[in-house]
């Protein structure tokens, strides 16, 4: 069962990621990416990380992708012409061939190494919200506070960038 679910989630996640980078319009790319992130949540659930699975859907598929879609709708209204892209085949091959070579090397290297079996995840190591929060607010308290400062700075930066020139206080 786990095998089936892994291949289902992994295949859909990778397939829709490929659709994201190959679709012509930005809107369909964003919708494929949402689907990819929902399947990533399934992969997290298989990795005994239910809290991360829920956060993946809430933050990535919910918040971040909605932000993307808003910006796409704002920019790609009637004004934006169809995407003019020079997508020459040799360029894609030039970049895809090294990527494929790296992938093949990694796969052969990884499948030779003996790290194939998980230690059986005991029930008390599943990443529920309670256990992750305990770790986050004890051992990683400083990192937790710092990351909230990063988010605060990002909010202020986005606000400052989004305002009109004459509204800025230093103008």
């Amino acid at each position: 069962m786990e095998t089936f679910l892994f291949y289902l989630f992994a295949g859909l996640m990778l397939g829709s990621a490929v659709m994201t980078i190959s679709s012509r319009s930005a809107v369909s790319a964003a919708v494929w990416l949402i689907f990819s992130f929902v399947n990533a949540a399934g992969v997290f659930a298989l990795l005994a990380a239910p809290f991360l699975a829920i956060l993946q859907i809430l933050i990535y598929a919910g918040a971040i992708m909605v932000l993307f879609l808003f910006v796409i709708m704002m920019l790609q209204g009637p004004v934006l012409p169809a995407e003019r892209e020079r997508r020459s085949l040799w360029k894609i091959l030039l970049l895809g061939a090294p990527a494929a070579a790296i992938a093949v090397t990694l796969i052969s290297w990884l499948s030779q190494s003996g790290l194939t079996a998980f230690a059986v995840a005991a029930p008390e190591t599943a990443g529920t919200a309670e256990r992750v929060a305990e770790l986050l607010l004890n051992r990683y308290l400083l990192a937790f506070e710092l990351i909230s400062i990063v988010l605060l700075v990002a909010i202020i930066g986005a606000l400052a960038l989004g305002r009109k020139e004459e509204d800025l206080p230093w103008q």
Binding site: A49, L115, G127, V132, L135, L136, A143
Partner: peptide
Amino acid sequence: SRVHGDLSGHV
């Protein structure tokens, strides 16, 4: 994180 049985990876 699952291999090591340590939840630090989740953080």
